[in-house]
Design a protein around this nucleic acid. Sequence first.
DNA 1: CGAGCAACCTGCATGC
DNA 2: TGCATGCAGGTTGCTC
Length: 277
Amino acid sequence: MPELPEVEVTRRGLARCLEGQVLVGATIRNAQLRYPVPEQLADTAPNLVLALVRRAKYLIIETSRAAIIIHLGMSGTLRYLSVATAPSRHDHVDLHLSQGGCVRYRDPRRFGAWLWVERPGAEAVNWWESDERLRQLGPEPFDPALTAECWYRATRGKKQEVKRWLMDGRAVVGAGNIYAAESLFLAGIDPRRSVGSMGRVRYARLLEALRRVLDQAIEAGGSTLRDFVDDRGEMGYFQHSHHVYGRAGKPCLLCATELRQIRQGQRTTVFCPVCQR
DNA sequence: CGAGCAACCTGCATGC
DNA sequence: TGCATGCAGGTTGCTC
């Protein structure tokens, strides 16, 4: 489910309910996610929420004691409940707030992850990135320091297919299978094209398309394919704006050619063989 | 070192 | 109806 837009939609919604609130422990019903859910979460010592931050597809709850880092995996959702209701089968974690509400994590497939990073004594900017998994992430798509020229220079002589390159987290973070396919369509680039064969013009189009599609998806509340919901349990509606993802065999919205489906590194790619070159 | 691929887990759509 | 198969938004960690 969640690529960058869905994580950002969740962050924005949750920030309103959580910032300035005090966490007072957690109920962990099933600790078995990608890694065991950290036991420190259940500690009832008051823990002030200072900020909610997103880095790539990670959500970071910065508190007075630690950073609680959450990855939603394929099927994770975080919802704010002002009144606790009976949990259902895949509601694995509740974070309790001093005022009585809670944040509930649901994740049927359990590919998600929760990490606890202690606040260090001598504090640096973005200190939670001391975690190995966050440290090695590539640039944020909206970072002004990321330019088409960076991409152009980094790819000379490389043969990797552009769709796999876009998704692998080194050139840029946040583009998963939906938004990689969509931005390649909007940029008019064949997903099989090798990155070394692309010039500055194509990189400029691609970066612009990626930023636009991520922006619009965030504004639309994300894409709900099966189970994504925001902090209030509301579905996104950007799935209605997909041009290629999930539309194999249907006509291209620009030229009516039948959209083609291929496999690239275990993932399905849909594209228009006429519009994308 | 990079690329390719299986694995992690549940639910749902499809086809026999 | 029931069962087997394949596929799904992501990442890790193992091979070659």
